[in-house]
Design a protein around this nucleic acid. Structure first.
Lengths: 241, 241
DNA sequence: GGGGCGAGAGTGGCATGCGACACGTCACCG
DNA sequence: CGGTGACGTGTCGCATGCCACTCTCGCCCC
């Protein structure tokens, strides 16, 4: 486990370390760990570790088991289904709204994130790629003006990352991902809120299908994944005035 | 062997107490409190109190201020806007999906909650009314099969409760609220997913408008509230295949 | 009399002490 | 030989100790 050198609050450092360790799989899904042990490895006392774990537990990444330890929860197929159903409900409307609200700084930041993604894709740097992917989405969500939405969706991504980072390459090239984001960015720049929302919708939907199909394949053995999960609750007729 | 009392963990009890205290206004919005003080009042040590407050802080109800105390956050107009924008995005699709997935127990529970609401409305029992209102919505959200969605929306309600419980009576009678839920329930029983979703949408929208108008009135002084907030991000043209 | 300052009280954050409980081990009994 | 129960180890949950920092208020110097 990585030791953080900097001088932010101990709690925040521990939280970041633990979150990273869970995401990268350094703390294996399903495994059990003691607070004391984690604290020793991080070079701090049990208290900040416990407090950070409480936050992760609220997010659903770990679970306390009394007198046994802390269980690292695994991301099931159903978890992926839940996460992407929510992202499909929230991100397209958020983008639609963000288009009319983005200020200069945010647009610049968006372009910057996209440029970093392109560069990382060229360099085949998966980690940097997903890092900026996340920040790209976060800028958009924040621009929608709803902090709770932004925080919630950002938290949802954690559940996917530890499945996604290591495996996305198998089914979709980094260039494809960049292309989907380019489409979104172009439509935003053109002021086409509706188009951008639709592009985001397709992007999330595409990502969901790939990850879920792949995950189902991993669970059931290779080559026979025939799952068809109804992710998209918005497909029914419109409930509008 | 059964353990009837099933004494919940101290932490859970403290969490419930603090949440209730914040919602009822016993801990006034904007006020500052020390962990030590709260712990003494609850008859426990600082640790479980601090841990419960950390959870409330993650939910946005309180904020730690180093070396000063714990601030009880107030629900601003913008907070209400955020909460209801999210509920409008999430609850109608959840209901649409729930209609086709409700099992017998859940339908029975739904009818039971509604009956309690009717009874509480007749008895003019505001508190019981809102209690069952919340559980009515929760049953529906859980029936949609997405635990994250249910937990998230349920958490959002906390932000509204402390404004809503004490003030809803001024603008809308309990009977009106019951009527809106009756409409939803009837359409669910009839298997009309689309109609139920629309009814839920109108219900949430109606609630939002009343609460926000009233809150704006309270902020700006009585009689001149002329706010028009764009809650409804779904009103734009449909992003569909 | 006015202004600056310093000492004290109070606080959150981190470290540590302590008790009750879960689980694996192993000796002992049937 | 198989089952069983007591013990030891390890763990969380809760209580408490300690420290650096903030804020207040009264005192002292000018």
């Amino acid at each position: 486990m990585k030791q953080l050198p900097e001088t932010a609050s101990v709690n925040a450092q521990v939280l970041a370390s633990l979150r990273a360790a869970v995401i990268t799989g350094e703390l294996a899904p399903g495994s059990l760990h003691s607070v004391q042990n984690l604290a020793t490895q991080l070079g701090v006392s049990r208290t900040p570790v416990r407090e950070a774990l409480i936050k992760l537990a609220q997010q659903g990444m770990v679970r306390f088991e009394r007198n046994r330890g802390v269980r690292i929860l695994l991301t099931s197929l159903h978890d992926l289904e839940e996460v992407f159903a929510l992202r499909l409900l929230l991100e397209p409307p958020a983008v639609r709204r963000a288009v009319t609200r983005l200020d200069g700084n945010q647009k610049r930041e968006l372009r910057r994130m996209f440029a970093h993604m392109e560069k990382a894709a060229k360099a085949d740097d998966e980690f940097t790629m997903f890092e900026h992917d996340r920040r790209f989405h976060r800028v958009l969500l924040e621009a929608a003006g709803n902090a709770r939405l932004a925080a919630f969706v950002d938290g949802l991504r954690d559940m996917v990352l530890r499945r996604g980072v290591s495996t996305a390459r198998e089914s979709r090239s980094l260039d494809d991902i960049v292309a989907e984001h380019r489409a979104i960015l172009d439509l935003i720049e053109a002021g086409d809120a509706e188009g951008a929302a639709k592009a985001m919708r397709e992007h999330v939907r595409h990502t969901a299908e790939l990850l879920i199909a792949q995950e189902a394949g991993a669970d059931l053995g290779p080559g026979l994944a025939a799952v068809d999960i109804d992710l998209d609750w918005t497909l029914a007729a419109r409930d509008q005035d």
